[in-house]
């Protein structure tokens, strides 16, 4: 594919485009179950940026995240992370390289305690003292989890499980945090809470790729966004631009 597919640079809001983005995806193609789920997309995330990837159900957003995390193998294209090519690197190695994915449906270990789930997040780390400090940080960030440390994660509510999944991802001290539909299936109050936390984490300088069906919510916290439709990116720009765009208004914001 041609080089002309590099996404439009952000115009007004958001961090200025750095010369060396944290993640740069070019012409990514994924074939999933015989279907071309991702048809050659380009996107990038700069350090410290919160980027939203929005689009309707089945647009290929989750498949894109899975390809970035190494759970599915792309049929073509490049994924450069911190300047290196990820293509031949297995999922578990990517986790150790600082790429964390909070998967759709959260993927908490239901038969493990919350504390064990968080320790699983730190699986690739060997700095015991720092791990203990980070555990305390997570319990401070999510006080509800602190009260339930030794409870099995499967007994928690959906919102609490989302907190476990996020805290677990943060325990790896990621340099790129990817969140897949964190609002899915949660009560409105819990959604607000989760998004407030996402904002807090971003404010600390974390680079985040946020996939959401709830476009308004995602664009309200993001600096930039991409709109994905049937496997291709159809629009990109600053979050304010996208929120104001007629096309996005009509398709995803209900008016």
């Amino acid at each position: 594919m041609s080089e002309s597919k590099i996404p439009a640079p952000p115009s007004s809001a958001g961090a200025p485009r750095a010369g060396n983005p944290l993640l740069e995806v070019r012409d990514l193609q994924v074939v999933y179950g015989g279907i071309r789920a991702v048809k050659g997309i380009d996107l990038h995330i700069d350090r410290g940026e919160l980027v939203a990837l929005i689009g309707s159900n089945g647009a290929g957003k989750t498949t894109t995240l899975k390809a970035l995390a190494g759970l599915v193998h792309p049929a073509g294209g490049q994924i450069r992370y911190e300047g290196g090519e990820l293509h031949s690197i297995a999922a578990h190695r990517r986790a150790a390289m600082g790429i964390a994915l909070v998967p759709e449906g959260r993927g908490v270990f239901a038969r493990m305690t919350i504390a064990e789930n968080l320790l699983m997040g730190a699986y690739s780390r060997s700095d015991k003292i720092e791990i203990a400090t980070d555990l305390d940080r997570m319990y401070a960030l999510f006080p509800r989890l602190a009260e339930r440390k030794y409870q099995l994660a499967g007994t928690l509510s959906g919102g609490e499980q989302q907190m476990v999944a996020m805290a677990r991802a943060l325990m790896s001290r990621p340099r790129l945090l990817m969140l897949d539909e964190p609002s899915m299936g949660l009560a409105p109050l819990m959604v607000q809470k989760i998004f407030a936390t996402i904002r807090d984490i971003a404010a600390l300088g974390m680079s985040i790729l946020l996939v959401e069906q709830n476009a308004r919510l995602a664009l309200q916290v993001a600096q930039r966004g991409y709109v994905m439709e049937s496997g291709a990116i159809t629009l990109s720009g600053s979050a304010t631009e996208l929120l104001g765009s007629d096309a996005v208004q009509r398709a995803y914001l209900g008016g």
């Binding site: 759970l71 998967p103 993927g107 493990m112 997040g121 790896s172």
Partner: peptide, 10 residues
Amino acid sequence: ENQHAAQLMG
């Protein structure tokens, strides 16, 4: 419990 999630943990 979940092979994919385990991989994501490293």
